[in-house]
Amino acid sequence: MFICVQKGKGRAIMKQEIEIHLKRHGDITIFDIQGDVTVFSEPFFNNAYTNANVEGMSKILLKFYENAYINSGGIAVLIQLLAETKKNQQQISIAGLSPHFQKIFNMVGISKFAKIYNTVEEAINDM
């Protein structure tokens, strides 16, 4: 089910667009993230999270695409989101990342707070 789209354009070093589509799959809210994640993505993640919370959610899946780029600012945004979900006792997982970013997420400790799956199907079956 389609709920909302957050779309925005960043500035400075990376000028990629980001779109966050919210979808529901059973009791899982999927954040379908298209584009690069940078500091400029923060309001879009915040809005998406607020909108999804209005609908009520206990399980969140961040769905990335193979070509997604997440820089240090984007990692900060994701850590902020992870902290919010922890505070609200929500389960959060991540799927679709390239091996490069799976490695980086392990190194910065994101994988301690969110389980990382290769595919959305794997994540949905396990959550």
Partner: peptide, 8 residues
């Protein structure tokens, strides 16, 4: 062994 991504 750990590099932080800045931009592509």
């Amino acid at each position: 062994g750990f590099e932080l991504p800045i931009a592509m």
